[in-house]
């Protein structure tokens, strides 16, 4: 059997794939966080909770409405986005004039409350969610078996991330968003409805987290704690990539997922800490992050 550095190719490749799958979730979550932080100046600690809500949305839609995975993939992020819009309009709106810290505290509290409610209702053992029929099974690539669903997750997340990047960097709507990130008052003085743009941006950012949650449901099970499990790593990803860079957060997310996967192959004990070690090094060498701009 082929080996790479003494590791069977099969194991090597499947860890890379696993890393890419995790990296896809990191990328989608850190992208949303970066967009929200850019325009709202809020460190959205509830981001993981919206990811969890996305997964629960899929499970609830299936269990109580009989709607398939594909419906959930569309409906659940929309519902999460709507919840985000309500949160922005009723709570976050009042904090923009205050220090970042208040937004962080509010969203952290919100995360604890929502997570607590779901724990109370559904317990912590997790609800199973089936891989959709269309994507069951695996494809034999010759050197490894590629589980179809995982391949789909990676492709779907890359497509969504690149589409987001394109809209922000290359369209008129994105120009509003970039300009609003720099100087929201001036953009509003030009006649753009900046408060509405802020609301929709928050809604979109958390909908992206919800979408990631639906993608994760068949892989990780649907668990009230899934949000807090991932969010700490995602914040480390954001710190490494640098707040505010769109492409930076996508690449950093995917890259760190792969690095985590590779660490599992070569030194499994370090796999859950490697991201934080990298974060510490990046903070020492480039405090603004790999893709961030020094302020």
């Amino acid at each position: 059997m082929t080996e790479i550095f003494g590791i069977p190719l099969q194991a090597f490749m499947s860890q890379i794939l696993l890393g890419l799958v995790n990296g896809s979730f990191y990328a989608m979550l850190s992208l949303g966080l970066a967009v929200i932080f850019g325009l709202l100046n809020i460190v959205n600690f509830a981001h993981g909770t919206f990811y969890m809500l996305g997964a629960f949305g899929a499970w609830l839609l299936l269990t109580y409405a009989g709607l398939s995975y594909w419906w959930a993939l569309v409906l659940s992020p929309i519902c999460v986005g709507v919840i985000g819009v309500v949160v922005e309009k009723t709570m976050l709106r009042w904090l923009y004039k205050l220090d970042h810290l208040y937004g962080l505290l509010l969203t952290f509290g919100l995360a604890l409350v929502l997570e607590g409610l779901f724990r109370q209702q559904f317990g912590v053992s997790g609800q199973p969610y089936q891989v959709p029929d269309l994507l069951k099974g695996a494809t034999n690539l010759g050197f490894m078996f590629l589980p179809n669903y995982r391949a789909f997750v990676v492709v779907a997340s890359i497509v969504v991330c690149l589409a987001t990047w394109y809209v922000i960097e290359k369209t008129k709507l994105g120009a509003y968003l970039r300009a609003g990130t720099e100087n929201p008052k001036l953009v509003q003085a030009f006649g753009v409805n900046v408060p509405r743009m802020i609301t929709l941006t928050y809604g979109f950012g958390v909908a992206l987290a919800g979408f990631a949650g639906v993608l994760a449901a068949p892989i990780l099970q649907v668990n009230p704690l899934m949000g807090s499990n991932i969010i700490i790593v995602v914040f480390a990803v954001v710190v490494i990539g640098g707040m505010g860079s769109i492409l930076g957060s996508i690449l950093t997310g995917l890259g760190l997922g792969v690095i985590e996967g590779l660490t599992k192959v070569f030194y499994p004990e370090a796999s859950s800490t490697v991201v934080f070690v990298i974060m510490a090094i990046v903070l020492l060498v480039r405090p603004a992050g790999l893709f961030g701009k020094e302020k």
Binding site: K172, A175, Y176, R178, A179, T181, E182, N183, V187, F190, G191, V192
Partner: peptide
């Protein structure tokens, strides 16, 4: 002038 926009994007930005 917005630094994350090109000169032309700056020109076309205000609705």
């Amino acid at each position: 002038i917005f630094s994350s926009l090109t000169a032309e994007e700056n020109l076309l930005m205000p609705p």
